[in-house]
Design a protein around this nucleic acid. Structure first.
Length: 639
DNA sequence: GCAAGGTC
């Protein structure tokens, strides 16, 4: 039997070939320089034993949808792109056609077709594209006859199991991706054209008078991910801009016991009425100007949880925060570590490990490390130190949380940094929570209550290996005193302060917002942030923050006025800069996947909503133009 | 000249 295997990318095809052939394969070049054909034999019991296998790959999607040139910028009304027929063309990534031809010709000489694309929604669709081209070479191949290997990492046993226990492609997932791509294309093109046509002249005119050709040639794009991303940055900007500082007052109390002084916090916190605070204070002074009385004293256990298993978004947030590695870089680097076989697939939303996971095996590999090997050893040797990681609430049913697969010690630079982070995070997840004890004391002065507390860390546990989490015993704890005891007042004064404005958005926060609101995927969140920077909707600015620096995100005139302008269009509670629409679409797509929604119905309903919004936008373009002019004038007159 | 999703 001759079996054709096709992966989503060459790196997988290469690794799977090495595993299944036990490194005994022949490699042939193809027309596409990135894609090789690997030939070897493998024993498929269901096909009677040793089979001749050819394994090749695509490079992501082979085709994409396109608006036909008959509906071009200048030869058709823009609104026609909502209804026109679409073309399917090759993606232009270095010879998708060559990849399609390679699959087609290999299929001619194959009896069986097995799809090895990634186990996610897009992977199902790419699998379908592969089946289509295989069918051109061999009409017996279709969705019902093609097999699909289900695998989520490159551990050899896992791959062999996937090979001998194949399943079928998921037709509903294929439908969902088809709907998504059509909606993204039609709405993206429609709004990009109307915005560019409507605003370009105004922007060009205003800016050529001043700072040359800024924005002059740029198109003004709309994307169902770009706009909500911009919206988050503008929202924060507006909250800062509209912030009004308020004065507050509070009573500040210091007491002493022996030679030590202790700060207590007023139970009422901060109040915005100065006279009221002063009158409460005077009441206390009149009742007793020298001592306070201990009312409550108790100690209770406190713990700091070990981290959850690692998802892509958490990895990107932490790398941005701890190492100043941008979301895009950290994903690329993690992808490299994955193709080297060092960590599991780095694009995952799952934060709980499979029940049958062999943690001890993974931990034991890390004993080799000179840096964390000793810790790994302690987890294995002392059964009371190891625990099965906590289970989060997310599961993409495709990939386990990111974890180390094999040990490697000769990495350098950012690869070393991120590998170390993944390993330590994994070991931490397999460790006990840190424990401590918290002592709380309540004292009464006059009729007012004040509190102090002190933390003593007892067992550091996971903190020993997860060096980025900090949790320490507090320096000033509570006085050693008993209930009923009187303590001397060192000072008691009314202090005042002002509320402070929110801080500009950081990339870490933006990633979190996009994740929570379902904007983009693990793989594309970073791209959307980059795109709205190159479209000049936002800028990234570096500011000193103590010894290091902090990067924050700010809207430009254009980004600001687009966001604000759209909110003035009165689009019946649907704002294109808010994430609701994308979230609704994501729910619809999941509905298609689990069979509760029809593909055609979702397409029709969603296009109707966007088309209405488009008509309003077209009619009210003067509002968007005015928003830009106002913002431009405001900024230039200000400086 | 347009999207978002893959990947090199």
């Amino acid at each position: 039997m001759r079996v054709l295997c096709v992966a989503e990318k060459n790196s997988i095809s290469k690794n799977v070939s090495q595993i299944l052939s036990k490194n005994s394969y022949q490699m042939e070049n193809t027309q596409n320089k990135y894609i090789k054909n690997y030939k070897f034999t493998f024993n498929f019991p269901r096909w009677g034993g040793d089979c001749e296998v050819t394994m090749t790959a695509a490079a992501g999607h082979i085709t994409k949808k396109e608006i036909p040139s008959s509906n071009g910028w200048n030869n058709s009304p823009t609104i026609s792109v909502f209804d026109c027929s679409l073309e399917t063309i090759y993606t232009d990534n270095d010879g998708a056609e060559k990849i399609a031809n390679n699959i087609q010709s290999l299929a001619r000489n194959a009896d069986m077709l097995m799809i090895w694309t990634d186990c996610d929604r897009e992977g199902e669709f790419i699998g379908w594209e592969i089946v289509k081209y295989a069918q051109r070479g061999n009409p017996r191949f279709n969705l019902d006859t093609a097999f699909r290997a289900k695998f989520s990492h490159l551990e050899p046993n896992h791959i062999r199991q996937a090979a001998i226990n194949p399943i079928k492609l998921d037709k509903l997932a294929i439908d969902a991706v088809d709907v998504r791509s059509e909606l993204d294309l039609r709405t993206g093109v429609a709004f990009t054209r109307i915005l560019t046509k409507g605003l370009q002249d105004t922007i060009r005119r205003l800016n050529s008078r001043n700072d040359g050709n800024k924005n002059d040639k740029s198109i003004i794009s709309y994307g169902p991910c770009q706009f909500p991303t911009l919206g988050f940055v503008v929202d924060r900007h507006l909250r800062i801009k509209n912030f009004k500082a308020e004065s507050f007052w509070y009573i500040d109390l210091k007491v002493k016991k022996g030679h030590s002084k202790y700060n207590f916090t007023w139970d009422r916190g901060r109040l915005f009425d100065r006279l009221y605070v002063v009158s409460l204070y005077q009441d206390c002074i009149l009742q007793n100007s020298s001592t306070v009385t201990v009312k409550e004293l108790f100690t209770k256990p406190k713990s700091k949880y070990a981290p959850l298993p690692l998802t892509t978004v958490e990895l990107q947030k932490d790398c941005s925060k701890y190492f100043k590695i941008s979301a895009k870089d950290s994903l690329n680097i993690a992808e490299n570590l994955y193709t080297k076989g060092l960590i599991s697939y780095p694009r995952t939303e799952t934060d709980s490990f499979p029940r049958n996971m062999d943690f001890k095996h993974l931990i034991s590999q890390q004993r080799e490390s000179s840096e964390w090997g000793e810790y790994a050893n302690s987890l294995l040797n002392d059964p009371t130190k190891f625990r099965i990681p906590r289970r989060g609430k997310h599961d993409d049913e495709a990939h386990p949380p990111i974890h180390p697969v094999t040990f490697q010690s000769n990495l350098v630079g950012k690869e070393k940094t991120i590998y170390e982070y993944v390993v330590r995070r994994f070991l931490a997840a397999c460790s006990l929570d840190a424990t401590g004890s918290m002592t709380n004391m309540t004292v009464q002065w006059g009729d007012e209550i004040f509190k102090a507390n002190g933390l003593v860390v007892l067992e550091r546990n996971y903190l020993e290996v997860y060096k980025w989490d900090h949790w320490d015993s507090t320096k000033n704890t509570v006085p050693n005193a008993n209930i009923g005891e009187k303590l001397s007042i060192v000072s008691a004064v009314v202090n005042s302060g002002e509320t402070s404005p929110p801080q500009p958005l950081t990339e870490t926060e933006l990633i979190a917002l996009m994740d929570v609101n379902g904007i983009g995927t693990d793989a594309t969140i970073a791209d959307h942030i980059e795109k709205i920077i190159t479209r000049e909707y936002i800028t990234k600015e570096k500011k000193k923050d103590g010894r290091s620096y902090k990067e924050t995100l700010h809207p430009t005139i254009l980004g600001y006025s687009l966001s604000v302008g759209f909110s003035q269009l009165g689009l019946d509670n649907i704002s294109l800069t808010k994430p609701f629409l994308r979230g609704d679409m994501e729910k619809d797509l999941n509905g298609i996947c689990n069979g509760t929604k029809q593909k055609g119905q979702v397409l029709e309903n969603t296009l109707k909503v966007y088309k209405e919004a488009f008509k309003v936008t077209e009619r009210k373009m003067p509002i968007l133009i005015k928003a830009y002019k106002d913002s431009w004038n405001y900024t230039h007159n200000d400086n």
